[in-house]
Design a protein around this nucleic acid. Structure first.
Lengths: 340, 340
DNA sequence: TTGTATGCGTTATCAA
DNA sequence: TTGATAACGCATACAA
């Protein structure tokens, strides 16, 4: 690639003029503008974004930090964020933490060093140290998918509390009373909201939450399998399970198979987030799905507004919770021996 | 964040000395080094990667360009590439093309403007124009997952030809004769290799490939559904189908369900690439899987070697094809009326 | 061992 | 309308 200096020489003008020809074409005479354009064309000139950013004090990069892109839910967030960012002329630096607090800080450090314009963060840590660290971090941060109590920032999520309540109410409506919840990693906002939503739906129906029916996993399939195994091998096993995400639900389903427990005939199963081509998973899972494209687009928009330095840049933190949608699958049905 | 100048002032030295303290600590006296370190610590100094890159003429970014991160196969490539890159001090700019040639060029343009150190590309286009464009592109390119005939570059893939042959031979071994193939997008290397591998296995078994049993999809689920519908509603429908990737296989499976065709009793199905938690897809798909972590790590290594400017930087293009692994599922069985 | 000066590619300011 | 110059933050060659 070539520099603006070379373009200028070829066009027989000063580099400042060549620069002007691109930034404010109207301030350059017709003739020279053409010469500069032609020279740039011939040389295949592309402005050096690094230099532009250094000069401007801000890059056209945004960082996206999430746990794991192997989960198609996150894969879609990335896809949508990337598209939305590109429409605004920004590229996305994608970083995964693999659920590791150390890695999370490391990638945030790197993003700060890169002077990214802003960071979309689906936080994994939530300890006070981490919050203090985040507050010191220079790039603007917006939270996506996962909120963080005690940290002031725009946050775009779906309503996890409501979603969990919807799933639980659906099961209660079918007649279930012993409903278990396989929750996500302790400490995470989504995990806790989903727990609360689960319990609140139970209480609303006059069913006292049983502590032994609330187990924590870590959002990975393996943990769903293990916790489901615990639940299902008890003498007083639950008649229905709510999993806090898609992978843990699949793990639970696998556990049922291995135990020859039929779903939904013996035990019903419902979860957060669909799986790709969920239609061919047997049985089709009942789940609540989040409007991922909207979450991605709004978070990008808000982040860029903050960065833009316009009137929107100030003002109190904004928060939006999208309403999830319940998809009735075949994995939930009235409990077997409901003749109570 | 602060600059090295501020660090230097606080430590009472020139900024070049401060710089030295980080790049060549041994060339700075114990005492001043400590003063500089302390000052940096106090100010939370992080070197500006933009400025470093501008100065060095090369950034510590690598671009990753692929079709779609919603496919967990690509999601895992991204995850692994990001991890490998981070270990070498590089961040990853992730860009999706959404199978759109225009977008593909656009993101490549942007990456070039960013002066990324190199690009890992899973190309979607393959026309001569595109090849010419790629050859002019400044950043070093390595191909991943998808090769590109006529373009000189390191390329890391799995052996698609072999993989398709493995699937086909497996079906032939079960006694199938009328085997169909739902191929990927025409023009893509993986699509063509898989076609060739499919046909070559047929020929090796003395079964003449039937042109009407070879249909092209576009690697998306919907196309798998549609082409499977075509195949399965024929009077002389095939007894087995090989799909060129996971999503198209799931689409085909859905088509079978909708047609009340049992798999594998009526028609067998085999595919490239697993699906996440494939164990709960009924029936468990027979498929060949690729060693994604190895593909990702080798491609990153080769790319960085080329960039590094060391002895490895020169030399002819390298190519490696990993051997895929056949996973026997429950979606393949001997054909129903095999008494031929 | 430390400091001075220069340039990486841009853009903005100011003068011509 | 155009050109000379400075500055963004850093690293290096060279001088002290």
């Amino acid at each position: 690639v070539s520099t603006i200096q070379e373009v200028a020489e070829r066009a027989g003008v000063a580099k400042s003029t060549a620069s002007l020809a691109f930034s404010s074409p109207e301030r350059v005479s017709e003739a020279t503008r053409k010469r500069i354009r032609d020279a740039a064309e011939a040389l295949g000139y592309r402005p050096n974004a690094l230099a532009q950013s250094l000069r401007a004090g801000r890059s056209r990069l945004i960082g996206l930090v999430m746990a794991d892109t192997r989960n198609p839910f996150n894969g879609e967030i990335l896809q949508q964020v990337q598209e939305a960012a590109l429409e605004h002329g920004h590229m996305v630096v994608a970083s995964t933490t693999n659920e590791d607090a150390g890695r999370e800080r490391k990638v945030l450090d790197e993003l700060a060093a890169l002077r990214v314009a802003g960071i979309l963060l689906a936080p994994h840590s939530s300890d006070p140290d981490f919050l203090a660290y985040l507050r010191r971090l220079k790039p603007r941060i917006a939270l996506i998918d996962q909120a963080l109590d005690g940290f002031e920032a725009d946050v775009v999520t779906s309503d996890s509390h409501l979603g969990a309540s919807m799933l639980t109410a659906h099961l209660l409506g079918l007649g279930h009373q012993r409903i278990a919840h396989i929750a996500g990693s302790p400490g995470l906002w989504t995990s806790e909201q989903r727990c609360l939503g689960f319990e609140s739906a139970l209480r609303a129906a006059g069913v006292p939450p049983a502590p032994d029916l609330l187990l924590h996993g870590d959002f990975r399939g393996q943990s769903g399998y293990e916790q489901a195994m615990r639940l299902l091998t008890r003498p007083d096993r639950p008649t229905a399970i709510v999993a806090a995400n898609n992978f843990m639900a699949l793990g639970a389903l696998k556990a049922m198979e291995d135990l020859s427990i039929r779903c939904p005939d013996d035990v019903s199963l419902a979860s957060f987030d669909d799986v790709p081509w969920g239609e061919v998973v047997k049985p089709r899972l009942t789940c609540v799905v989040q409007p991922v494209p909207e979450i991605a687009r709004l978070s990008v928009r808000w982040l860029l507004e903050r960065i833009g330095g316009g009137a929107d840049a100030l003002g109190p933190p904004r928060s939006h919770r999208f309403i999830p949608t319940l998809i009735r699958g075949a994995s939930t049905s009235p409990p077997a021996g409901t003749a109570r």
